[in-house]
Design a protein around this nucleic acid. Structure first.
Lengths: 145, 145
DNA sequence: ATTAAAATTGAAAATCAATTTCAATTAGAG
DNA sequence: CTCTAATTGAAATTGATTTTCAATTTTAAT
């Protein structure tokens, strides 16, 4: 945690920007979230603890965090973006149930292998990837929807 | 083509909806597009041929086409959705160059195999999947961006 | 073919996520 | 501490998508 914050400060400084309380506070809050999150969720959390961080700042900081590779936009649901922390996580895919909206993560080294292979084969410089599988989860499937 | 239109008519009828000229015209136009498309592109094409189909109708018909599995929303760029025709296409992934914005398709049976495996393993009912790889293409990579 | 009811249309208004503007505040180099 | 440029929150704006609604069209039943 401390290490990530220090690293983020370095990142901000290197860009000639200022390391503000708001930026640190936003990253701290994000690091405390286990699952996926969206702007509303973050805003709500700040409201709850009487922090008056604005949505504008949240949006602005999220851009920086994506740029620095700290978080990723992983999928879109209900017309807006959902994010997750990238650091210390193996690349993985998301299974999204279109009925109950549950999101499950699946990690598979074979998938990462395939993607690395495409990268080398075509001489791409891979930055990130998203694999989203849409369908019905085991439970919702049983409801015969 | 004719077969797809007939099948779409059946789909519309089964839902108790009306098979209108606009819906058919929109699907026809989409089937004539090789690559990916977005709402603007479609709207522009209708304008060009003096067809007065509205954006509202385009949006409404796209929803139906997605629901029926005729098209898929494949990625988001510049704040809006991009689609492609699903029928007769093998599932595939998209490599999106963040610099020149070129989108390349990659098909790999091994990937489809892996996904089928996840589906069976977890007893999901898979509907569709999207795999997007973001990075730099061979050409843009050379520019050392 | 007419007709009537219900669905669909285009145009405009509304919605909503995301971005931008701007005056006031703050970080941080010197 | 001081100064300048960057950042902030709030409000305005943008732009995609959705909704509203009166006029039109489809289609099933006459």
């Amino acid at each position: 945690m401390e290490e990530i914050l220090r690293e983020f400060k370095r990142f901000i400084k290197k860009k000639g920007l200022k390391y503000t309380q708001e930026r640190e506070e936003i990253l701290k809050e994000i690091l405390s979230i286990k699952d996926h999150f969206d702007v509303e969720e973050l805003y709500f959390r700040f409201k709850e603890k009487n922090s008056k961080i604005s949505k504008a700042s949240i949006y602005r900081t999220l851009s920086l965090l994506v740029e620095g590779g700290y978080i990723q936009e992983v999928y879109r649901q209900d017309g807006h973006s959902h994010y997750e922390v990238t650091l210390h996580k193996t690349p993985h895919l998301h299974f999204i149930c279109i009925h109950c909206r549950e999101v499950q993560e699946i990690t598979d080294e074979r998938l990462n292998g395939l993607i690395k292979e495409y990268e080398e084969e075509r001489e791409y410089k891979l930055l990130t990837y998203h694999l989203e599988i849409f369908g019905l989860c085991k439970a919702c499937r049983r409801l015969k929807l």
